Computed example of a mutant assay.
Amino acid sequence: MEAGIMSDKLTLIVGATTNPTRYAYFAASRLADAGVPFIPIGIKTGELFGEKIMDLRAKPALENIHTITLYIGPSNQEEWIDYLISLAPERIIFNPGTENPVFFQKAKANGIEVLQACTLVMLSTNQY
Rank of each mutant, 00 (worst) to 15 (best):
E2H: 06
E2F: 08
A3W: 07
A3M: 09
I5Q: 08
D8I: 13
K9H: 06
L10C: 03
L12P: 03
L12W: 05
V14G: 13
G15K: 01
G15P: 01
G15I: 00
A16L: 01
T17L: 00
T17H: 00
P20S: 12
T21L: 05
T21C: 01
R22Q: 03
R22I: 00
Y23Q: 13
Y25D: 08
F26P: 03
F26S: 14
A27N: 10
A28N: 06
R30P: 09
R30Q: 15
L31H: 09
D33C: 15
G35Q: 15
G35H: 15
P37F: 15
I39G: 00
P40M: 10
G42S: 03
G42E: 01
G42R: 01
I43M: 09
T45A: 04
L48K: 05
L48F: 09
F49T: 08
G50P: 02
E51Q: 15
K52H: 13
I53M: 13
M54E: 10
L56F: 14
R57L: 09
R57Y: 03
R57A: 10
A58M: 07
A58G: 02
K59W: 05
P60Q: 03
P60R: 02
P60G: 05
P60H: 03
P60K: 02
P60Y: 02
P60V: 01
L62Q: 12
E63S: 14
E63M: 12
E63K: 15
N64R: 14
I68M: 08
T69G: 12
L70F: 01
L70I: 02
Y71I: 04
I72L: 06
G73V: 06
S75T: 11
S75H: 07
Q77L: 00
Q77D: 01
E78K: 14
W80F: 14
D82K: 11
D82Y: 09
L84I: 01
I85A: 12
I85N: 08
I85C: 12
I85P: 14
A88E: 15
P89K: 04
P89Y: 02
P89T: 04
E90F: 11
E90H: 14
R91D: 14
R91Q: 15
I92N: 07
I92H: 06
I92W: 08
F94G: 04
F94P: 03
F94M: 04
F94T: 03
N95D: 04
T98P: 04
E99P: 03
E99V: 06
N100R: 02
N100M: 01
P101G: 13
V102N: 12
F104Q: 12
Q105F: 10
N110E: 02
G111C: 06
I112T: 05
E113F: 02
V114T: 15
V114H: 12
L115Y: 07
L115C: 06
C118L: 12
C118G: 12
L120G: 08
L120D: 10
V121T: 15
L123D: 11
S124Q: 14
T125Q: 11
N126C: 07
N126Q: 11
Q127W: 10
Q127V: 08
Y128R: 13
Y128N: 15
